[in-house]
Structure formats: C-alpha cells, structure tokens
Design a protein around this nucleic acid. Structure first.
Lengths: 277, 277
DNA sequence: AATTGCATTCCAAATAATGGAATTTCAATT
DNA sequence: AATTGAAATTCCATTATTTGGAATGCAATT
C-alpha cells in the first residue's frame, strides 16, 4: 500500500490548539522537521535528489538541513547516500507513549473492551487529517505492537478517524475536511467531502462511527469518539475484526459497549484532572 | 598513548557514526533537540521553570524554543503549563522502527533464539553512552512491547551495552567510557572505568558479555556483539531471564547460541548488502 | 487590594541560515 | 584504466532568524 503523492504539502492544519496554525514549516526548526517528515513519509530510504524533488528548498539549504538532522540522530545516512529515519526518535517516542496520560488512563478500558468482545481494540488520536494510533489490545500477539502503534492512517476511512472528526467543532471539522486529499482504498471508501460530512452528522446523532471495509477489504469496525479532559487529544476508540467473523448485527451490538468505554475513559480523566485544577 | 592499533581503526573510516557521537548542541536545531531531550528524559511533565533550570538557555530563548517545539508537535503543552513529549514523534518512530534494516534482518534470528532458550531476547544498539532497544521477543505478552522498545539504558550495566562496547575501536571505547557518569543500581554494578574496561577485555576474548544482576536485582543475561554491515549500528543481542530460573551454568550454556545468532545476523547483512555494493 | 511566583512578550544586537555557483565524488561505460 | 555524466558536497557574501535582558501579563494566595 504505497501512497506516493501523500507527502507533498499535507496542509498541516491540525486539531485543537496546536492545530489552528494554518502556516507551518516556518522557522528553522519547522523547515527541518518538514524535511524529516518527507523522509518519514516515504516507504524506502531516500537519496538526496529524491528529497530535493519533494522539498522546495535550494540544494545548499537542503543539504545543510539534512546534515543537521543526521548530526542530531533524527536521520541516519547510509553508506550509499540514502537517508532514513534515525533511531534516536525511538527513545523520544517511547517516552511520549509511556508518559501520555490520555493513553495511560484509557488503557484499562481498552482491556475491558477487549475482554467483552474478544476482538482487537484500538485507541487513536487526530493529528491534522491523519489518525495516529496510540494503543492497541489484541488477542494474538502474532502481529507486532509497533505494526500499529504510531501508525498514521487517513481520518476519512477509519472508524477511529471518523469518530474523532465527529467530536470537533464545525469550524475545526471544516478545516480538516478541506485539507483531505481523498483516495479510494476499497469500493466502500468515502471519496467526497459531502459524503464524509453527511456521515459525520449521523455519527454525532448516534454516537458511533463505523468502518465498513472502507480502508481495508474484509476489515470492519465500530468506534466512538473520545477526548482528553482539556481536549488537547481528540480521537476515537474502536473494536475491529474480520468481516467473515463479524456480522453487521454483531458489530452493532458492540456499539453501546464502545460508547460506554469511551464515556468511562472521559469520566476517569475528569476525575483525575478535575480536582488537580 | 600512541597505539598503532588506533590508527589502524581510524583508517577504517567513519565507524559507528550512529554509535559514537559527542555532544552536539550546536545550531538552532541542535539546541531545540537538546531541549526536547530534557523533557523526554524526565519521568513527568515539566513546567517552564523546571526546564529552565536544566537548560543553560536564557528565559526568552528557552521560551521560544519550547514554543517552536510545540508548534511542530514535538512537544505538547498542557493546560497547566506542563510540557510533555508530543505524539507526532510516534509517527516518526514507527517509521524508524519499521524501516530499520538492521532490525528487519535480525528479527528472524531473535525469534529462533527465543525458541531455543524460551527466554526473552533483546536487540539493542549503542547511542552515545546509552543502549537503545530496537526489538524484543518474549513469551508472555503481559509486558507491553513499548515497555522496552525505544527504552534507553546505560551501556555499562547491561549485557547488550557491554557487548556493544566490546565491538568498538579502542579510541571509540575510550571516548564513550569517558562520557559515562557511573551510578550504582545494584551491589554488582560496575562503577569504575577500570572495572568496565577490564570486563570489556574479557568480552573481546570470549565473545560474550554478561549482566549478572548489575542493572536490576534478580535479572541476568548473556549477550554477544552485533553490528550492521557498514558498522553504522553497533550493539548487542541478549537472552535475559530471572535469576531464580536461570543458573549461571544455564546462562553460560546459552552463550554459544547467542554468539551464533549474532554471527548469523551479520552474515545475513553481508549477504543482503554485499551484492548491492 | 496587594503580593508573589510564575509564564510570556519585546526588540536592538548578535548570530546562524541562506542559496546560487563552483567543486568534488561516485558509478557506470568504454 | 580512462572517460564521462550525474549526483553529492562545499563555499561564502548576503540575508533572515535567533538571541537574551528587561519589561509586561496573569492568576493564584494573603
């Protein structure tokens, strides 16, 4: 599943407070991280000229930016002049994950939901027009944790993504939807803003989002919106499974469980964060 | 101290750029990442003044650096003015992990080693005077993957760390050892450069490093050095288990298995990278 | 209402980044 | 072994960004 033209500009209009920045890539740091993002969004190591083609920086500038990133361990430069993401980021991410209170508070609820359904449970948050998976509980350990945690998927074709969108204000929703470059993954993928917005309305009314094989054929899920106490994290909670095992009726029967779990998470967060303020 | 062997090693050129690096807080990016590192190294969210105390930047400067990091999603600023590591790093790390060829090539060998011993297997690489765990295979899934992957531990009291050190040139070894601030974790922890260097010599001779409850009481391990084909990654492979289950004799009986697995990984890497060059 | 302990903003001076062009290295081919 | 075109890297006068000490804002506490 390669998405070639994805890392072009991505119009990073994110969510919440860290989000309403229309302009990004400003300042020395911003430009450097934009370069890092280009390399991180590719699915193979990139050579200098490959990156040059995607970045809008002059040769000399780009070269120094890359050198700085390598110097800091954020990128790694192979003998064959190919750049890939550096392992120093693993350390940062491990801390980001372990220290994330939203995830920590949610974790027991994910487990409970997994026990109730027997299927894979995901927690993800919005970041721009992507959803980043924060946690996952599954039965078989065959699939590695890292295979999902940290992974970025489009908002418009995942249960977690659509659930998250439904929790945004209209202004935020409009901004995100406008930044989406729709791409058809399956026959069921929603590929227009109108179809997406219509579905968001339904989600707001019912409290549940569904992924009916819209991202991957044979994969269904039911989700509900969750957000952290201060709304700095907005996302969703979902139960996912193979279509052959999960009938639409079964999926629907889990809807209330997912909503309850999402509600319980938000209650826990209020309980922990409320008094402290 | 004009050891001819040193020149020999230096002549081998660019060894372990990734593995051994001095402090490089230079440039705008470097200083920003240094600030990020301060926040990532703390085990709780930090407020502005906490960070100010640890960084040697003036108020105004630090404040703008933090703002920039938040702007880029590398840090997240809570409503209570506390900074924590941002989830955008999860995306970068997921790519760094999935795309890391060293880890990809090593993975089947970790599994095989796990099957042979039944105990937890770790793969880690040196970064400065820390070892960063790249992968882990364990029996019980009770402990979460993220609990180790990406985690940074001191080189001098872990099997993987000491194994990695033994694979460095004398010059690199000296540089790393000089940068260590020794801390006693258990009664067995090596706390002097001399003791560490003496043990590195033994590891070089035998091909195996041991952690005899030097980091955590009740935890033992046997390790062997590994490095990527171009030596851009230098680290170790280890089998770890609880002391009550793993006698010193049993541990020693695994030594050859670990050495063989390490050798097989390096052979695989040569096989994949060799023809391409 | 005043105080205290923070976090945040300001702006001239200092410093680091910029980028077009020149140079060097690489790798494929003869 | 020599040639050559492509790719990577370095150079340095110009330009834009960061710097940092001091002033200001903000919200609890007395």
């Amino acid at each position: 599943m390669d998405n070639p033209a994805d890392h072009e500009d991505e119009a990073r209009s994110g969510i919440g407070r860290e989000a309403v920045r229309g302009r990004a890539d400003t300042g020395t740091l911003g430009k450097a991280i934009a370069v890092l993002d280009i390399v991180a969004s590719a699915d193979a190591p990139m050579r200098f000229t490959d990156i040059l083609a995607l970045s809008d920086q002059p040769r000399g500038t780009l070269h120094r930016q890359l050198s700085n990133l390598v110097e800091e361990g954020l990128l790694s430069l192979g003998r064959d002049h190919s750049y890939s993401v550096g392992i120093r980021l693993l350390k940062f991410a491990a801390r980001a994950w372990a220290g994330n209170q939203f995830r920590v508070i949610a974790e027991p609820h994910l487990r409970k939901l997994h026990d109730l359904t027997g299927e894979t449970v995901h927690l993800g948050v919005l970041r721009g027009n992507e959803v980043i998976y924060l946690d996952k509980v599954e039965s078989r350990q065959a699939v590695r944790m890292y295979s999902q945690i940290g992974n970025a998927s489009p908002v418009y074709c995942t249960g977690v993504g659509k659930a998250g969108l439904s929790a945004l204000s209209d202004a935020e929703l409009q901004a995100v939807v406008a930044s989406i470059r729709f791409r058809r993954f399956t026959d069921s993928t929603l590929v227009t803003p109108e179809a997406l917005l219509r579905e968001i309305e339904e989600i707001r009314a019912s409290g549940n989002a569904y992924d009916r094989e819209e991202h991957e054929p044979g994969i269904r899920c039911v989700a509900a919106p969750v957000h952290s106490a201060d709304r700095s994290f907005v996302g969703g909670l979902s139960v996912t499974g193979p279509a052959y095992r999960i009938s639409p009726e079964l999926l629907e029967s889990w809807a209330v469980l997912v909503r309850n779990a999402a509600g319980a998470i938000m209650e826990d967060m209020g309980a922990r964060l409320g008094p402290r303020t």
